[in-house]
Design a protein around this nucleic acid. Sequence first.
DNA 1: CTGTTAGCGCATTCAG
DNA 2: CTGAATGCGCTAACAG
Lengths: 347, 347
Amino acid sequence: MRPTIADIAREAEVSLATVSRVLNDKVEGVGAGTRQRVKDIIARRGYAPCGAARGLATGKSRAVGLIVPDIADPFFPPIIKGAEEALRSLGYGVFLCDSDRDLAKEQEHVRILLEKRVDGVLLNSTASDCAAQLDVLERHGVPCVLLDRTVEGRASAPGVYADNRGGAARATGHLLDGGARRLCFITGPAELAISGLRRAGVEDAFRARRLDPATILHALGDYSVASGERAVEALLGAGRRRSPFDAVFAANDRMAIGAMRALKRRGLRVPEDVEVIGFDDIELATLVDPPLTTVAQPAFEMGRRGAELLLRLIAGERPRKRTIVLEPTFVVRGTTRKRHSVRREST
Amino acid sequence: MRPTIADIAREAEVSLATVSRVLNDKVEGVGAGTRQRVKDIIARRGYAPCGAARGLATGKSRAVGLIVPDIADPFFPPIIKGAEEALRSLGYGVFLCDSDRDLAKEQEHVRILLEKRVDGVLLNSTASDCAAQLDVLERHGVPCVLLDRTVEGRASAPGVYADNRGGAARATGHLLDGGARRLCFITGPAELAISGLRRAGVEDAFRARRLDPATILHALGDYSVASGERAVEALLGAGRRRSPFDAVFAANDRMAIGAMRALKRRGLRVPEDVEVIGFDDIELATLVDPPLTTVAQPAFEMGRRGAELLLRLIAGERPRKRTIVLEPTFVVRGTTRKRHSVRREST
DNA sequence: CTGTTAGCGCATTCAG
DNA sequence: CTGAATGCGCTAACAG
């Protein structure tokens, strides 16, 4: 049988309360000698306090939920690591929930997390239309921080995300200033607000240069390599005409890499014939040939900052800044051509 | 305030026990009418039973821990998904623990999991020398299933892993039968038994063909792309001599990809000058150019089977087969030359 | 500085 | 078929 606080108390010949006090590092209320004696016994017996009992008594579980669309997508692991690191140091457990890009599974996860009585939730929803989840959590008094997401009508919901619009504008600007004129933009699922934001950024860059956004070729992807590949293939068509675009900007690296594959198969050279830029900066971006130019998101930091914000919310604080915007970094690698002249500043 | 079972009971005008019965789907003891009425109220109030209280009363938390060395390594996410899927359907929560390939952090995680009173642990340790963790868990009566690991002196510890030795032998045999004679084997960290097993498989293949295993060039890596790159660079040396090996077999895909990069930089063609084979079959293997020939591990299934085994252990069963060996699949892609017939021909 | 006591929310006897 | 009582292990007043 696992020892309980009573066993420890008996062996140390003190009361339960005293053991509880040393367990919780209460500075006052326990003499140094007693404290040490109790600690020794705890260590020797390998006693581990029961979280469930503690939770019942305190109303806190020291556990949080972390919901992501798909951990197999290399963009997410760094986020998870960042969050986990910040949380573990404080003894928090992290319930990982992979929603498989399925809103129903996501809701199911929320339900389970509620039963687990998590103290808070980090939500990287599979859809920006996740107001329902936010409502449920709020009704139960469970704080929630959005990760890499903004939700319509919930602009004030606590969240951490990158400046998607600005990042997209910067990348597009680089393409336009380098001479590209026919851009193919591969966007992500429509149900994600970030898709719209990145698209808006692309258009911002066009307008800032008095170019017509209507000339942009749009393609729809789902963030997979295959979808990027298909999008470009479809646009290239069957004929042997030249490419209808001279640059591709994909809403994430995986689709950009898919695009590169399709381009290569058609005998189009990157970056000589067509330039390519991705978004995220996953490890894979450095491994393809040529290495991918991309808009790097500080994923690890996003997770860490999100966890820190959630912790403050759990502690009952009302932070002034409930939304944190991280700056993406534009990383020039091998899928864009060298720029000789000084380029203008983008929006 | 979140509703408790008492609130539901009061509103339904029944006792706590009755509500508890419908909550736990006890077939007997509640009339159909009463049951439905209670269910309706539960749904309407959005009542979620408190896991902590339940855990205290039953001694079960319906949560398990899953410890992995590094979720940013693409080999692990599929394992996690497999485990998570099997567990979620039963209402289990999964505490994800990333040990950062650090044994101390891993032990810290075990400690936290013990406090969370997890019902079991899936352990993909960062070192095969994890008997200490197994001991602690056993002492606390927490079942544990090893994932992708075998532990010395604990051959009977429940676990799920691939036939590493056989897989390595198969790949090496393919190389040798294709004419390769000077093999470079990039192994993983010495603290992992699988490193030794894969090495043994390589030697098996040599001996089976009456070739001397002593001619194998060994290099040490740490499963990172960079380490594979460095290993090959070191072996190639500074000179302009020809390559001292005609084939590279790396203990995982990432190192194999690093090796390919180093080879390419030195102007060596893959597979014409040097053949390359990896291990795992991560998504990346299909994306590099040429696509990587590799020994595919059924990672998703490993996670799923591990979870299923753990569930049985938690239920108190004593399965006959406590260790499950999965068969890897040898996948021939572009980094090995075509085999026309069984021939012997040195490069 | 230390001990006593009363719940926390639920499952589970045992009665009825 | 249903209800009342007990305790799971711990924290948090409150006493002393």
